[in-house]
Design a protein around this nucleic acid. Structure first.
Lengths: 226, 226
DNA sequence: GTCATGCTTCGGCCGCCGCCGAAGTGAAGG
DNA sequence: CCTTCACTTCGGCGGCGGCCGAAGCATGAC
């Protein structure tokens, strides 16, 4: 009957821990094999296969055959946005009893699509905001003139001319906005370029070498605990 | 283990048709009694009671006692955004076999928070875009100078000075963006003011009287079929 | 007090779905 | 050819969870 059966069907796909694990593992846009996803979801390959079939049928995943591997990835950015929406509501897990260092790293700094998230991402947004380089509303934001000059000097001016798109993106671990949009992407890519942050294998968590800590402190006044 | 169990738990709340119906019925922000929601979900009051308890425990609904009634509403706008995210992915239901006039009306014109959605909302966005009054990216948009003049004349300039926030919001029935943000809100409120659209009881669907059809045609060049 | 109403709790039934072991496909490599 | 590896399909087990009838609290009206 109602249209909501479709909503329920889609939501039910996310409503299983194994499937949620699979989707979370794909959040950064990479394509992973069925086996890797089985490992990420903590289930056997048979079980994962069933889940992957359901997710594909439901239009959440796209699959690509390559030799005897099958690479799965999110079917569209829409799916990622949906997941972020659910994460924002699900909220940060209740204060975890220390341990679990990977999670800690994720909360410190990670990628969110093509921009920076985690405490680092939020601190960056705060810094730009506090210095009047960007003005942010709940719906979008814009770069001030001073901000434009600053970005030019930093080497992170987003692409075409004066038109700068910038959008707050709710950080699921911090529950506060970080910068997305072209501005967020430009900032992130400049930080990679400078070697202030670096990707790791098999995780969205970022490494911040000494030069990065120094850079963020001297350029943005960011000092993160821990 | 991971954080995704929380995601799964939250998503599982949406993954039941009855609960999805309940949430969909609350999407417009109204507060409804348990009985009304039971009716909306097509289940008995006992069953609905169980669902409502789960949704409240999960933090998706807020409840307010009033005499012997209990009014339920969405706990926060975040929940609404999450639902829109899921709807966007779930997509428009497969072409409905006519009948169901309420659904047709909803797809023609409805409110989405404080702005206009449905075919009307999308057409409005298209018109402003085609005339060069707004420039839209996937992350945000801005009003051109010509657009600002047009909006001033129309009486729908968003609040403070030059800073105009505008954001595309994916329309779940049309799968195309309509205008949200302050601009969307200002446009909608001006349309209400002019009597071009009117609210109805118990539905987010909007009525468009003759004067509205004329206004949209003459001012924006919008002519909607049906 | 008694009654009606709105909502919740209890108990039992039933079905769906996630899980894994085992067997089946299909592609690479020798 | 046969082996290996990645992945899927099959079959059966087990349990979670949605459903409703009936009974239990409340609140408000009389």
């Amino acid at each position: 009957m109602g249209d909501s059966t479709r909503i329920a069907a889609t939501a039910a796909l996310l409503g299983d821990p194994a499937r949620a694990n699979i989707l979370a593992a794909l959040m950064d846009g990479r394509a992973l094999t069925a086996k890797e996803l089985a490992y990420a979801a903590h289930v056997t390959p048979q079980t994962a296969s069933g889940h992957l079939a359901k997710l594909s049928d439901g239009g959440l995943l796209a699959v690509e055959k390559q030799g005897r591997h099958r690479y799965y990835r999110l079917a569209s950015p829409l799916v990622g946005q949906m997941l972020e929406g659910v994460m924002a509501v699900a909220g940060p897990e209740p204060p975890r009893s220390s341990t679990w260092r990977g999670g800690e790293a994720l909360r410190m700094a990670r990628t969110c699509y093509d921009h920076l998230a985690g405490r680092l991402g939020v601190a960056l947004a705060d810094a730009l905001l506090a210095r009047g380089h960007v003005a942010l509303g709940s719906d979008g934001g814009e770069v001030t003139e001073a901000g434009q000059n600053f970005l030019d000097a930093f080497g992170a001016s987003p692409a075409p001319g004066r038109r700068v798109f910038c959008r707050p993106c709710l950080d699921w671990s911090e529950r506060r906005p970080h910068l997305a949009g072209r501005l967020g992407a430009a900032l992130a890519s400049r930080c990679f370029e400078l070697g202030w942050v670096a990707q790791q294998r098999d995780t969205r968590a970022l490494v911040i070498p000494e030069i990065g800590w120094r850079g963020f402190r001297e350029t943005f006044g960011i000092v993160l605990e821990n």
